[in-house]
Design a protein around this nucleic acid. Structure first.
Length: 326
DNA sequence: AATTCGTGGTG
DNA sequence: TCACCAAGAAT
């Protein structure tokens, strides 16, 4: 039964922790992915963009969007002055398009308050729109090499299994988890960066949520969860509702607006089962519009979704038509 | 603390 | 097939 190394770890625990660090670091050096936001030429801005895009979004989906984005807007100042419609279209289908809005707002704040350079300190990053506790720590650590306690979903899962012997972490981050994570973080800056990065990568590639590849894990023999016989997770995950919700309609409306090269009549977005396409509608407009119009959602729900997008700043009303802002 | 917010791949 | 899941943040 491994103790959680909170205050005064025993020599045994200290030795086990040192082994864990070394092995995971060695595994990361040989098996870690070669991602463009990890290459030596990366910029703090590139790291920040990647962290925002990667929120709740798989790496494979982010890769092509990140490459285009960095070529088009290689600095915060470039993004700051871009038309919002361009930003939302470049975001494409990464999901949660409010992130794109906040990323641009963050770029504008970086220009206004930090001379156009991404700040390196946690508190200053945290003050930027769309940047929370995780992203602030991640940018500070991965872009600037600072010693930060990074806690994301991967790291939480590895900690839960390796040190706490649980199948999965609880739904929300607890104070005990944060304490544990702090106690595990190496004192030296360079070592702390490697620890953050390598544990996160282990969670992403080996210690996965669904079917972990324990046979490939470098610390299999040191894992508290395996020692406990891989017990099932305690609380069942709560599903993310989607079908028949406003989110589904918001997504469909955004798809139409992204594809449209001119403002779209609001009635097309809200009338139930309207199938007549606008005269001269392009093929790009027709496809998502058709998908939207066949959604079995009440007219009132569609109206609510449109209103929500407008009030969130993701869409703009011009008379009875709506379009992307900017 | 519990919800809301997109999108698409997958076990 | 269909929940579940993916480098969370804001409220």
């Amino acid at each position: 039964m491994p103790s959680p190394h909170i205050a005064d770890p025993s020599p045994q625990d200290a030795q086990r922790l040192a082994q864990i660090r070394d092995r995971i670091a060695a595994w990361y050096a040989s098996d870690g992915r070669d991602l463009p936001w990890r290459c030596p030429e990366r910029t703090p801005w590139g790291v920040l963009v990647s962290e925002i895009m990667l929120q709740q979004t798989p790496v494979v989906r982010v890769l092509p969007r990140w490459l285009d984005w960095m070529r088009r807007w290689p600095s915060p100042a470039d993004l700051a002055e871009a038309p919002t419609a361009d930003v939302l279209r470049a975001w494409d289908r990464l999901g949660y398009p409010r992130r794109a809005l906040r990323l641009q707002a963050a770029a504008q704040a970086i220009v206004a308050d930090h001379g156009g350079r991404v700040p390196r300190e946690h508190d200053q990053l945290l003050a930027l729109p769309g940047i929370g506790s995780y992203t602030a720590a991640a940018v500070s650590a991965f872009a600037f090499g600072e010693r930060q306690c990074v806690i994301d979903t991967n790291i939480r899962r590895v900690h839960a299994r390796l040190f706490s012997g649980k199948g999965l972490p609880s739904r929300s981050l607890t104070a005990a988890e944060t304490r544990l994570a702090r106690s595990l973080l190496p004192e030296q800056r360079a070592a702390s960066v490697v620890w953050n990065q390598s544990v996160m990568e282990l969670g992403a590639l080996i210690c996965t949520a669904r079917s972990p590849r324990c046979d490939q894990c470098p610390v299999q023999d040191l894992c508290a969860w395996i020692a406990a016989g891989r017990p099932e997770p305690e609380e069942a995950p709560r599903g993310q509702s989607w079908k028949g919700t406003d989110r589904q309609v918001r997504g469909a409306v955004m798809a139409v607006l992204r594809a449209a090269d001119q403002p779209v009549p609001e009635s097309w977005l809200t009338r139930d089962r309207q199938v007549t396409l606008p005269r001269g509608a392009s093929a790009d407009l027709a496809r998502p519009l058709e998908a939207l119009l066949t959604l079995e959602s009440p007219v009132e729900q569609r109206q609510r979704a449109v209103d929500g997008l407008v009030s969130d700043g993701l869409a703009h009303r011009r008379g009875d038509r709506i379009a992307l802002p900017g």
